[in-house]
């Protein structure tokens, strides 16, 4: 089955073609980051407008990559939530209408299920069951995954998502939006022993996260070091290193607990923050001690993309699921309400 996947839940337009036999046949992405950077954050209306301009050119591009006529598509999968409602609607209305005209089925896909299954696109995919850490600008969740659609939430952030904390810390040390990846770059040059930032909620049992206190700690530390309102380059790097280590450590501690609690021997990490090199290294060390294995997608598929939506949609479509002609998106959509698929 050849599935066209469409992702428009936030500020990236992603389109891909996944073939259940041949794998990924085409994959194209347009990032709106530059559009929103001027505003210091994602402006939902501008995001929606940009998706309308970019979606079809990307569909054309992936068809060309796959060297395929449009009528060779067997189904369309689009992100139906969670995300920005106006942005979601662009992909959903266009995708659903394409499927109608082609006379093929369509399915609305859960964005986080897409992320969670993204490591399946790699050469050595994990097998169910496993523990998943979903870390992005919008989510920080630990999920027990027994199969597709069989998700049990083990813990989540009670306030900011880890990626959001990265972006806010970036702003505090004078980096432009979205500064998360920049923080990691500065941290590489920082002295990791100079500061020790708190590891929130690691001193008590449980798998929930909280990053707002860490954010305040970062703000206070940077304010104390400012001279005439300016933060020296070395101070910025050292703060970035301390901040990154605190987030990474916290995530690693909770992941270890989740492996121990479930008894599972596989951990997958997904979402934009899962591309963080320090996090990957730290988790590799941890899983080795736990005699477990770590899985993640290539960096391109850690952030939002069409491939993960095509893949996730394909699994559900092959199990006989599909969406009717009504175009329905859910800006909020708890993942544990998803239907399981029957295996085989």
């Amino acid at each position: 089955m050849r599935v066209l996947g469409i992702e428009t839940s936030c500020d990236e337009t992603g389109v891909a073609i996944y073939d259940s036999e041949a794998g990924l046949l085409g994959d194209a992405l347009y990032s709106q980051v530059a559009v929103h950077a001027e505003y210091g954050g994602v402006v939902p209306e501008l995001a929606s407008r940009d998706h309308v301009r970019k979606l079809l050119p990307l569909v054309k591009e992936v068809l060309q990559q796959a060297d395929m006529q449009a009528d060779a598509i067997d189904a369309v999968a689009y992100t139906a939530g969670p995300g920005l409602i106006g942005a979601l609607m662009v992909g959903a209305s266009t995708g659903r209408a394409m499927a109608l005209a082609w006379g093929v089925p369509a399915i609305g896909v859960h964005h986080m299920e897409g992320h969670l299954l993204a490591p399946m696109l790699e050469e050595h995919p994990p097998a169910f069951p496993f523990v998943a850490l979903l870390v992005s600008g919008g989510h920080t969740q630990l999920v027990q995954v027994d199969g597709i659609g069989e998700y049990t939430l083990l813990g989540e952030s009670l306030d900011d998502a880890a990626g959001e904390a990265f972006d806010k810390a970036a702003k505090m040390i004078g980096l432009n939006y979205p500064g998360g990846p920049e923080v990691a770059r500065l941290a590489e040059q920082g002295d990791r022993s100079r500061f020790r930032f708190p590891r929130p909620m690691t001193d008590r049992p449980g798998l929930d996260f909280s990053f707002s206190g860490l954010k305040t700690f970062t703000l206070n530390t940077s304010n104390d070091l400012r001279v005439d309102g300016v933060l020296a380059e070395k101070d910025r790097c050292d703060i970035a290193a301390a901040f990154e280590d605190a987030v990474v450590d916290t995530l690693a501690i909770k992941c270890r607990r989740a492996l121990q609690q479930t008894g599972f021997k596989q951990l997958i990490i997904a979402g934009g923050v899962s591309a963080n090199q320090r996090l990957r290294e730290r988790l590799e060390e941890m899983v080795k001690k736990e005699r477990a294995a770590l899985f993640y997608a290539r960096p391109r598929f850690c952030t939002d993309n069409g491939a993960m939506i095509a893949y996730a949609g394909c699994q559900r479509l092959m199990a006989g699921q599909s969406s009717d002609l009504s175009i329905q998106c859910q800006p909020r959509w708890p993942m544990d309400t998803l239907e399981p698929i029957t295996k085989g």
Binding site: V52, L55, L56, V59, A70, M89, V90, G91, A92, S93, T94, G95, R96, A97, M98, A99, L100, A101, W102
Partner: peptide, 11 residues
Amino acid sequence: TGAAQGLAFAA
């Protein structure tokens, strides 16, 4: 717009 684009592109 989305529906028109989708229908027209596909057909």
